[in-house]
Simulated scan of single mutants.
Amino acid sequence: KAKKLWQAGLKQLGKSKLDLTLVASDITTDKNVSEFLQSQLESKLPGLKVTVKNLPSKSAYNLAANGKFDLYLSFWINDYADPYSELQTLEMTNSHNYGKYTSAAYAAYNNELKQARKNAATRSVYFNHLLKAQEQMNQDYPVLPLYTMVEDHLVNTNLKGVLWHKVGMVDYTQAYFK
């Protein structure tokens, strides 16, 4: 299906090939992921050439923040344990909406988030609005989650003061041995 859509897209553009630039940081994980994406995209979509730009994190971020990319590999971890933390990144006014996501149904997406905020006191209504926003995002696919990071920590039972955040981060700055 991807190949058919790709060919239809090229035809619509009146092109037989396309060059895209993938911007990512120069950390090992991002280098490996961006090289894998380049390989997969070029081998599956005839006529596509992907140029990878692995840059220092700040440089990659600056390109993304200024909209100077075709594809951008980024990392997101929620600020708090609630789907709203992730969904709100695609609101037009959010600085993390690097691709300036919008669509014909984008007003509905923003409205669902607005209604979620307005009805946050009623849990079922709140999550129903978030679910509708997620469904709209899934139709448009402005962001493609590639993987989820998971960490395991083997911790000595005498180690106290470790902060286990609900969003997956572990903070050892207050840790001490009893």
Rank of each mutant, 00 (worst) to 15 (best):
A104H: 11
S16R: 13
T173K: 08
V167P: 05
Y176M: 07
M169W: 08
A116E: 11
V167C: 07
S34W: 00
Y80M: 04
I27A: 10
T157V: 08
L22K: 04
L63T: 00
E151H: 12
Y98P: 11
Y61A: 14
T148W: 05
A24G: 13
E42R: 03
Q115C: 06
L5Y: 09
L113Q: 07
K100Q: 14
D79M: 06
V23N: 00
K114Y: 15
L22C: 08
V143M: 06
A120K: 15
F127T: 04
G67E: 08
P83E: 09
L71M: 14
R117I: 06
E35W: 00
L55S: 01
K53I: 00
P145K: 12
E151C: 06
K58S: 13
E86S: 13
A108P: 03
L87W: 02
L10D: 11
L87I: 02
L113P: 08
L45R: 06
V150I: 13
F127Q: 09
R123K: 15
Q38M: 11
P56K: 07
N32T: 07
T102Q: 14
L41E: 05
E42F: 05
G9M: 10
D19C: 07
A120Y: 11
L20V: 10
T173R: 14
D171E: 04
I27E: 11
I27N: 14
V52N: 02
L13C: 11
S16Y: 08
N138P: 00
Y176R: 13
Y106M: 02
N110I: 03
D30S: 07
A121V: 06
K118I: 07
L13I: 08
S43K: 14
A104N: 14
V33G: 00
V167I: 14
K68G: 02
P46G: 10
E86Q: 07
A107F: 03
E86F: 05
M137I: 04
Y172A: 01
L13R: 15
K1H: 15
D171K: 04
T148K: 13
K68P: 02
E35K: 07
Q38G: 08
I77Y: 04
Y109G: 12
V125R: 11
T89I: 00
Y80D: 09
Y72I: 02
Q12H: 12
N94M: 01
T102I: 00
K160Q: 12
V52C: 04
W76G: 01
V33H: 03
T51P: 01
V167N: 11
Q136A: 02
H165A: 10
N78V: 02
E112T: 05
S103H: 05
S74C: 03
V167H: 11
L10A: 10
F75E: 09
K17N: 14
P142E: 03
W76R: 05
A133V: 04
L87S: 03
G47W: 00
H165Q: 12
G99I: 02
H165Y: 10
K166M: 07
K4N: 13
L71N: 02
A65I: 09
A60S: 12
A133N: 10
E112Y: 13
V23C: 00
V125S: 08
D152P: 00
T29G: 04
T173I: 02
Y141Q: 13
